[in-house]
């Protein structure tokens, strides 16, 4: 299982659904979520989304793994709305955020990256007329997904190095080596892409 929203193999109806349909559904539900303004409505949608996780054969751990990175943003947003707009609005806003993240997670957990990329490439083809290269857009998305665990790994290495040298938490001492390593990785990745014929 990956907490980073990567594909979990399966043969469920959700897995078998076309990637393009899942992406369109995600966008449509994202737009429709604007009309959710009662806590019971949000609770019902959360229930439906969790039922979809169950239908896909994914455990509650998969769902929780999608929400974990949202914890700080959710807490901040919830407290802000609680103080400014009251408890009902706070529940709705945090609930809608959770729904959107869970839905996006469901799509990536049940769809191979290549299928997602193929769907995006197909969707971008009409944009070729205005100079957009659909293959590059697809590659960009695949690399974006691939780079999440890489950057997490680099951040862990930097934090370990800081601890080993007895440095206290300092945003600058953390950010500078992380950015340098990320740029170095990007450079190496670019070279590897050229070696694998991407620039051809």
């Amino acid at each position: 299982m990956s907490p980073l929203g990567l594909y979990v193999p399966g043969t469920s109806p959700v897995h078998r659904a076309p990637a393009a349909a899942k992406l369109v559904g995600l966008v449509a539900l994202g737009v429709l979520s604007v009309w959710l303004d009662r806590p019971w409505q949000v609770a019902a949608v959360v229930g439906l989304v969790l039922a979809s996780y169950a239908l896909a054969g994914l455990s509650w751990r998969h769902a929780a793994g999608q929400l974990r990175p949202l914890a700080w943003v959710g807490a901040f947003t919830g407290i802000f709305h609680l103080l400014v707009n009251g408890v009902e609005r706070a529940l709705v806003v945090v609930g809608v955020l959770a729904v959107l993240v869970l839905l996006a997670g469901l799509v990536t957990l049940t769809t191979r990256t290549t299928d997602l990329v193929d769907a995006v490439v197909a969707g971008c083809r009409p944009l070729r007329a205005v100079g957009v290269d659909p293959e590059r857009v697809g590659l960009m998305i695949a690399l974006g997904i691939r780079c999440v665990p890489v950057v997490v790994g680099l951040a862990e290495e930097v934090r370990d190095a800081q601890r080993a040298r007895g440095l206290t938490a300092s945003p600058r001492a953390f950010a500078v080596p992380l950015i340098v390593r990320a740029l170095r990785h990007a450079d190496a990745l670019g070279e590897a892409l050229v070696a694998r014929g991407v620039d051809d």
């Binding site: 990567l6 790994g153 190496a188 070279e191 070696a195």
Partner: peptide, 22 residues
């Protein structure tokens, strides 16, 4: 480049897709 494959020191820097088969 089609004739000559290149394998780098750091495999993390040349794996470009999220899963093994991809």
């Amino acid at each position: 480049r089609r004739r000559v494959g290149f394998c780098f020191t750091d495999p993390d820097a040349q794996i470009v897709m999220p899963t093994v088969a991809e």
